[in-house]
Protein backbone atom coordinates (compact mmCIF):
# COMPACT_ATOMS: atom_id res chain seq x y z
CA UNK A 1 0.00 0.00 0.00
CA UNK A 2 2.62 2.37 1.15
CA UNK A 3 4.95 1.27 -1.64
CA UNK A 4 2.30 1.84 -4.27
CA UNK A 5 1.72 5.34 -2.97
CA UNK A 6 5.37 6.11 -3.21
CA UNK A 7 5.50 4.84 -6.74
CA UNK A 8 2.62 7.01 -7.85
CA UNK A 9 4.23 9.98 -6.12
CA UNK A 10 7.33 9.58 -8.26
CA UNK A 11 5.22 9.05 -11.36
CA UNK A 12 3.25 12.15 -10.61
CA UNK A 13 6.23 14.45 -10.81
CA UNK A 14 5.83 16.22 -14.10
CA UNK A 15 8.23 15.49 -16.89
CA UNK A 16 9.52 19.10 -17.05
CA UNK A 17 10.51 19.15 -13.43
CA UNK A 18 12.48 15.94 -13.74
CA UNK A 19 14.38 17.28 -16.73
CA UNK A 20 15.19 20.51 -14.94
CA UNK A 21 16.20 18.62 -11.85
CA UNK A 22 18.67 16.56 -13.89
CA UNK A 23 20.17 19.75 -15.37
CA UNK A 24 20.32 21.31 -11.92
CA UNK A 25 22.03 18.32 -10.41
CA UNK A 26 24.54 18.26 -13.26
CA UNK A 27 25.30 21.97 -12.93
CA UNK A 28 25.55 22.02 -9.15
CA UNK A 29 27.41 18.75 -9.09
CA UNK A 30 29.81 19.98 -11.76
CA UNK A 31 30.44 23.23 -9.91
CA UNK A 32 30.87 21.34 -6.65
CA UNK A 33 33.26 18.87 -8.23
CA UNK A 34 35.35 21.67 -9.72
CA UNK A 35 35.42 23.42 -6.37
CA UNK A 36 36.54 20.30 -4.54
CA UNK A 37 39.19 19.50 -7.14
CA UNK A 38 40.70 22.98 -6.96
CA UNK A 39 43.86 23.26 -4.85
CA UNK A 40 43.52 24.87 -1.43
CA UNK A 41 45.76 27.72 -2.59
CA UNK A 42 42.84 28.96 -4.67
CA UNK A 43 40.05 28.50 -2.16
CA UNK A 44 41.45 28.81 1.35
CA UNK A 45 41.26 32.33 2.70
CA UNK A 46 43.20 31.37 5.82
CA UNK A 47 46.07 29.88 3.85
CA UNK A 48 46.21 32.91 1.63
CA UNK A 49 46.45 35.27 4.56
CA UNK A 50 49.22 33.27 6.17
CA UNK A 51 51.15 33.37 2.91
CA UNK A 52 50.63 37.12 2.64
CA UNK A 53 51.90 37.74 6.16
CA UNK A 54 54.95 35.61 5.42
CA UNK A 55 55.60 37.32 2.10
CA UNK A 56 55.18 40.72 3.72
CA UNK A 57 57.61 39.78 6.48
CA UNK A 58 60.22 38.65 4.00
CA UNK A 59 60.34 41.92 2.08
CA UNK A 60 63.83 43.40 1.94
CA UNK A 61 64.86 46.05 4.47
CA UNK A 62 66.43 49.17 3.02
CA UNK A 63 66.84 51.38 6.10
CA UNK A 64 69.15 49.69 8.59
CA UNK A 65 68.14 51.74 11.65
CA UNK A 66 70.25 54.25 13.54
CA UNK A 67 71.52 51.95 16.26
CA UNK A 68 73.90 50.08 13.97
CA UNK A 69 75.97 52.96 12.60
CA UNK A 70 77.84 53.68 15.84
CA UNK A 71 79.52 50.28 15.74
CA UNK A 72 81.90 51.53 13.05
CA UNK A 73 81.47 55.29 12.88
CA UNK A 74 82.10 55.96 16.56
CA UNK A 75 83.45 59.51 16.29
CA UNK A 76 80.55 60.87 14.30
CA UNK A 77 78.05 58.86 16.30
CA UNK A 78 79.21 60.02 19.71
CA UNK A 79 79.36 63.58 18.55
CA UNK A 80 75.88 63.39 17.12
CA UNK A 81 74.11 61.88 20.10
CA UNK A 82 74.92 64.80 22.36
CA UNK A 83 74.35 67.62 19.87
CA UNK A 84 71.27 69.30 18.47
CA UNK A 85 70.96 66.56 15.88
CA UNK A 86 70.77 63.84 18.52
CA UNK A 87 67.24 62.84 17.55
CA UNK A 88 68.14 62.44 13.89
CA UNK A 89 68.70 59.03 12.43
CA UNK A 90 71.92 58.81 10.39
CA UNK A 91 69.84 57.69 7.43
CA UNK A 92 67.76 60.87 7.51
CA UNK A 93 70.63 62.66 5.79
CA UNK A 94 72.71 59.77 4.42
CA UNK A 95 69.87 57.80 2.88
CA UNK A 96 68.95 54.14 3.12
CA UNK A 97 72.03 52.20 4.20
CA UNK A 98 71.03 48.59 4.86
CA UNK A 99 73.06 47.54 1.82
CA UNK A 100 76.07 49.32 3.29
CA UNK A 101 75.63 47.51 6.60
CA UNK A 102 75.51 44.17 4.83
CA UNK A 103 78.63 44.87 2.81
CA UNK A 104 80.37 48.16 3.63
CA UNK A 105 82.46 48.08 0.48
CA UNK A 106 79.67 47.27 -1.94
CA UNK A 107 77.47 50.24 -1.21
CA UNK A 108 78.43 53.64 0.09
CA UNK A 109 75.76 55.85 1.56
CA UNK A 110 75.17 59.25 0.18
CA UNK A 111 77.22 62.07 1.74
CA UNK A 112 75.33 65.34 1.42
CA UNK A 113 77.73 68.19 0.79
CA UNK A 114 75.63 70.38 -1.46
CA UNK A 115 74.13 73.55 -0.14
CA UNK A 116 70.69 72.39 -1.29
CA UNK A 117 70.49 69.61 1.29
CA UNK A 118 70.27 71.40 4.65
CA UNK A 119 67.57 73.92 3.63
CA UNK A 120 65.16 71.01 3.07
CA UNK A 121 64.71 71.25 6.82
CA UNK A 122 66.24 74.61 7.71
CA UNK A 123 64.91 77.01 5.08
CA UNK A 124 62.55 79.51 6.61
CA UNK A 125 58.94 78.45 6.11
CA UNK A 126 56.04 80.15 7.85
CA UNK A 127 54.31 76.78 8.34
CA UNK A 128 57.21 75.43 10.39
CA UNK A 129 56.86 75.44 14.17
CA UNK A 130 58.20 78.51 15.96
CA UNK A 131 61.60 77.94 17.51
CA UNK A 132 62.77 75.53 14.84
CA UNK A 133 66.10 76.92 13.52
CA UNK A 134 65.55 78.35 10.05
CA UNK A 135 67.48 80.56 7.65
CA UNK A 136 66.84 82.37 4.42
CA UNK A 137 69.17 80.54 1.99
CA UNK A 138 69.37 83.40 -0.49
CA UNK A 139 70.87 85.83 2.01
CA UNK A 140 72.48 83.43 4.48
CA UNK A 141 76.15 83.29 3.31
CA UNK A 142 75.31 82.52 -0.31
CA UNK A 143 77.45 80.07 -2.32
CA UNK A 144 79.03 78.56 0.79
CA UNK A 145 78.59 74.93 1.69
CA UNK A 146 76.71 74.62 4.98
CA UNK A 147 79.38 72.28 6.35
CA UNK A 148 82.01 75.02 5.99
CA UNK A 149 80.60 76.73 9.07
CA UNK A 150 78.40 74.06 10.74
CA UNK A 151 79.47 70.55 11.60
CA UNK A 152 76.41 68.56 10.57
CA UNK A 153 77.05 66.02 13.33
CA UNK A 154 77.09 68.75 15.96
CA UNK A 155 75.45 71.78 14.46
CA UNK A 156 75.91 74.96 16.45
CA UNK A 157 75.95 78.44 15.03
CA UNK A 158 79.61 79.39 14.41
CA UNK A 159 78.92 82.90 15.62
CA UNK A 160 76.25 83.94 18.01
CA UNK A 161 73.26 85.26 16.10
CA UNK A 162 72.96 89.00 16.50
CA UNK A 163 69.41 89.46 15.30
CA UNK A 164 66.50 88.42 17.51
CA UNK A 165 64.69 87.35 14.35
CA UNK A 166 67.13 84.47 13.93
CA UNK A 167 65.05 82.58 16.46
CA UNK A 168 61.93 84.68 17.00
CA UNK A 169 60.91 85.02 13.37
CA UNK A 170 57.21 84.69 14.05
CA UNK A 171 57.16 87.54 16.55
CA UNK A 172 59.31 89.69 14.26
CA UNK A 173 56.88 89.05 11.46
CA UNK A 174 53.98 90.24 13.59
CA UNK A 175 55.80 93.21 15.01
CA UNK A 176 56.99 94.38 11.61
CA UNK A 177 53.43 95.23 10.55
CA UNK A 178 52.43 96.77 13.89
CA UNK A 179 52.70 100.30 15.18
CA UNK A 180 55.61 99.05 17.29
CA UNK A 181 57.58 98.14 14.16
CA UNK A 182 60.30 100.71 14.77
CA UNK A 183 60.81 99.91 18.44
CA UNK A 184 63.81 97.65 19.04
CA UNK A 185 63.23 94.42 20.93
CA UNK A 186 65.70 95.55 23.57
CA UNK A 187 63.54 98.58 24.38
CA UNK A 188 61.17 96.31 26.27
CA UNK A 189 63.23 93.10 26.81
CA UNK A 190 66.56 93.05 28.60
CA UNK A 191 68.60 90.40 26.77
CA UNK A 192 71.59 88.99 28.64
CA UNK A 193 74.45 88.08 26.30
CA UNK A 194 74.25 84.47 27.55
CA UNK A 195 70.65 84.18 26.21
CA UNK A 196 72.03 83.92 22.70
CA UNK A 197 74.17 80.93 23.66
CA UNK A 198 71.90 79.14 26.15
CA UNK A 199 68.48 80.43 25.08
CA UNK A 200 66.46 78.26 27.40
CA UNK A 201 68.66 78.56 30.45
CA UNK A 202 69.26 82.26 30.43
CA UNK A 203 66.04 84.03 29.58
CA UNK A 204 65.36 87.53 28.32
CA UNK A 205 63.20 89.65 30.61
CA UNK A 206 59.65 90.79 30.02
CA UNK A 207 58.02 94.03 31.25
CA UNK A 208 56.27 93.45 34.55
CA UNK A 209 54.12 96.46 35.36
CA UNK A 210 51.62 98.93 33.93
CA UNK A 211 54.11 101.66 34.59
CA UNK A 212 56.49 100.23 32.03
CA UNK A 213 54.00 100.80 29.20
CA UNK A 214 53.22 104.11 30.85
CA UNK A 215 56.70 105.39 30.10
CA UNK A 216 55.43 106.07 26.59
CA UNK A 217 51.65 105.86 26.87
CA UNK A 218 50.83 107.82 30.06
CA UNK A 219 49.75 111.42 29.92
CA UNK A 220 52.76 113.60 30.37
CA UNK A 221 55.16 111.20 28.70
CA UNK A 222 57.77 112.82 26.50
CA UNK A 223 57.16 110.26 23.71
CA UNK A 224 55.05 112.36 21.34
CA UNK A 225 53.90 109.82 18.76
CA UNK A 226 52.43 107.29 21.23
CA UNK A 227 48.69 107.39 22.03
CA UNK A 228 48.11 108.58 25.61
CA UNK A 229 45.92 107.30 28.42
CA UNK A 230 45.34 108.21 32.05
CA UNK A 231 47.14 105.34 33.81
CA UNK A 232 45.27 105.84 37.05
CA UNK A 233 41.81 105.61 35.45
CA UNK A 234 42.26 103.36 32.37
CA UNK A 235 41.14 99.85 33.42
CA UNK A 236 43.25 100.11 36.54
CA UNK A 237 42.59 96.53 37.66
CA UNK A 238 44.33 94.99 34.67
CA UNK A 239 47.83 94.88 33.26
CA UNK A 240 48.21 96.23 29.75
CA UNK A 241 48.94 92.95 27.94
CA UNK A 242 45.73 91.40 29.14
CA UNK A 243 43.98 93.50 26.48
CA UNK A 244 46.75 94.70 24.15
CA UNK A 245 49.22 92.35 22.49
CA UNK A 246 52.46 94.34 22.69
CA UNK A 247 53.79 92.99 19.38
CA UNK A 248 50.57 94.01 17.61
CA UNK A 249 48.99 96.61 19.91
CA UNK A 250 46.29 97.80 17.50
CA UNK A 251 44.64 94.41 17.79
CA UNK A 252 42.55 94.06 20.94
CA UNK A 253 42.90 90.64 22.50
Amino acid sequence: MCGANKKSFWRNIPDQIIRLAVVTVLLVGGAGAIYILLPASLTSTKLHRELTVTAETEKPIRFAGSTLCGDCHQIEYEKKIVGYHKSLSCETCHGAAAAHVDDPMAATPFVPREREVCPVCHEYDPSRPTGFPQINPTIHNPLQSCANCHNPHDPVPPTTPQECSACHAGIMRTKSVSSHALIACTTCHKVPEQHKIFPRIVRATKPESRDFCGTCHSQGSSERSAPKIDLSRHEERYVCWQCHYPHLPAERL
Binding site: P14, D15, Q16, R19, L20, V22, V23
Partner: peptide, 14 residues
Protein backbone atom coordinates in the same frame (compact mmCIF):
# COMPACT_ATOMS: atom_id res chain seq x y z
CA UNK B 1 15.86 19.44 -22.79
CA UNK B 2 14.49 16.69 -25.08
CA UNK B 3 11.02 16.97 -23.61
CA UNK B 4 8.21 16.14 -25.98
CA UNK B 5 5.07 16.48 -23.95
CA UNK B 6 2.77 19.16 -25.37
CA UNK B 7 -0.40 17.87 -23.85
CA UNK B 8 -2.75 20.51 -22.46
CA UNK B 9 -1.87 19.37 -18.97
CA UNK B 10 1.84 19.92 -19.54
CA UNK B 11 1.35 23.33 -21.18
CA UNK B 12 -0.91 24.32 -18.32
CA UNK B 13 1.86 23.38 -15.91
CA UNK B 14 4.35 25.48 -17.91
Amino acid sequence: LFSTDISDKAVELD
